[in-house]
Every structure is written in C-alpha cells, then in structure tokens.
Design a protein around this nucleic acid. Structure first.
Lengths: 139, 139
DNA sequence: TCTCTACTTGATACACAGTATCGATACGGA
DNA sequence: TCCGTATCGATACTGTGTATCAAGTAGAGA
C-alpha cells in the first residue's frame, strides 16, 4: 500500500500497517488540529472503537507524530507535531482558549544544560511548558 | 488550639481547622518524605478516609505545603516543599529511583523570560521538569 | 466549661483517562 | 488462495481524583 502522506509513510516505514481506523483517527486529528483531547478524537471518529483511538494515539505519540501537552491543571491535551520541530521543542499554552504553540530556543537549551550539570543528576530529557494568554485572548 | 509546627500554623493562619485527620495525613507525608503518590499516603494513613486524604492533599497543594511533580510518563507524585524554595522552583526527577530534588536558577528564569516575550504570549507561569538518573543510581 | 454552628469527615457513588483481555477480522506475503 | 500475525471492537478493569450528603467536631463566644 503506497501513500504520499508523510505521517502514513512514517507508520509503514516503522513496520505498522496502514489501516482504515488509523487513517480515520489521523484525519480526525488533522481536522481538530491545534489541540485536542482523547475524548474529542473519539467523538469525532465515531466509526473507530474507543480502545483503538487510544491505541492509535499512543502509537502516534511513540512515533513523534503527536505530542502530549500537560495543562496547568495537570490534564493532558495533544496536538500534531510540527514537522520542522519534530525533535525537541516546548509548548506555550493559552490558559484562555487552549491554543498551543511550539517553540525551541538554543539559548534556553544551553542554560538548561548548565543547570542540569549543577544538579548532580545525569539528565536525559526535560519537559517545559509556558502558560499565559495568547495575543488574541490578551485583549 | 496552638501549635509550634510551621505547616499547622500555615493551616490555621489561613482559616482552616486543625483536625486529627489533617494531622495524620501531614505526619504521613513527612514520613514518606521525598516523593509519594496519593495512594501511598492513603495506605500509610489507614485511620483517614480516602476522600479526606485527597481533600487534604489538595488543600496542602493550594497552600504551597506540598508540590506536584509530573513524571515523564504523565503520572503525578508529590513531595513536601522545601521551606526555602517555597515560592518558585523546579524539579529534577530520577527516573530510576523516583527521587525528586528541587532547584531554582536565576539564569534560567531570565532566559525563560526572554523566550516568553518572544512567543507573543503574555506568560503568567511555567512548569519545568528535568529527568535523569541521580548520583546514587548513576553507577 | 458549655453551646452552637460552620467546617470537616467518612462512606459511597461517580467521573475521567487510559489499559488489559480476548475473540473476531483483515492485511499482505508465500 | 491460504495462513500467520497485526489489528480491531467490545467490554471490563484500573488509577486518580471529585461530588454528595448525613454525621461528627473544632473552636469561638457566652
């Protein structure tokens, strides 16, 4: 089964099958776009079983296709990863409308590296989220 | 009811009553110390009802007595806040043994401030967690 | 010290997010 | 076309936390 879609190619290149439920979940996530919960994907993909939605979302997370964003109340939302920031980035979350933006900063990474060595830990990774109001909501 | 305990004084100063269940939960958290889940507090406080354990932990979080730490798998653990870093700090989490250490860095905060303005968001707060192996586990 | 009452508690039911199980289905290579 | 295995859907289950509500109690005032 051939496809031009980069995400679908990531799937099949990783040895996963390209099934209709997976395509349906993927399409749904593309429609929902900027940020969505697992439940929103579910209700927007009525032909796909609940377990499959979660399984597919977990798979996409492992493949780096979507990324998890932890809101300040501790709940999780998801979003499709930007192609050009697929490797390492952070999130800015609007606490008003929920909009999520990705960013990366070399200066920040350098500072984090310095802090990491000062902790005495052997740091593998980190998670950073900024919370505030986006330009639309910041009237 | 007078008390010399600083946390208990924080409670009563904030207008909350000093009850035996609250004391019991507090004692348990002190025994568990560095990091604990809500469930661990529950089983270690058998005289206190489940709902009260959650209620008390939520209250302690609001008062800044304990702080929530999000592990890299998304689950939450808690720890008593250091007195001297009660205002703003971050966490380093050992992915091996679960040990949690707090740290603060002015350089980092400055860099975060710079990044925050560049996002176009009006940033209120942020969450940062470092994951790695502590000196004991990094054999 | 006694009383009163708003705050707090425990039991229970509920909610939400995600996982495990398992028989049925379908993809895709031989 | 056949077959093994990945995948699916239905369902039950788990973990973490909240809502409800009748009963208990801290602690301020008499």
């Amino acid at each position: 089964m051939t496809t031009a879609d980069p995400i679908e190619r990531t799937l099949s290149r990783s040895g996963y099958r390209l099934t209709n439920p997976r395509r349906a979940v993927l399409d749904t996530m593309r429609v929902l776009g900027n940020h969505f919960t697992a439940e929103e994907v579910q209700v927007a993909s009525p032909t796909v079983g609940r377990a499959t939605v979660f399984r597919t979302m977990k798979l996409m997370r492992e493949l780096g296709v979507i990324c998890q964003v932890v809101l300040d109340d501790g709940t999780a939302v998801y979003q499709l990863a930007d192609d050009d920031q697929a490797d390492h980035h952070h999130h800015v979350i609007c606490t008003e409308c929920g909009r999520v933006t990705e960013f990366a900063s070399d200066g920040l990474e350098g500072e984090l590296e310095r802090v990491a060595t000062s902790t005495g830990f052997d740091i593998d990774t980190h998670r950073l989220e900024l919370y505030g109001r986006c330009s639309d909501c910041d009237a």
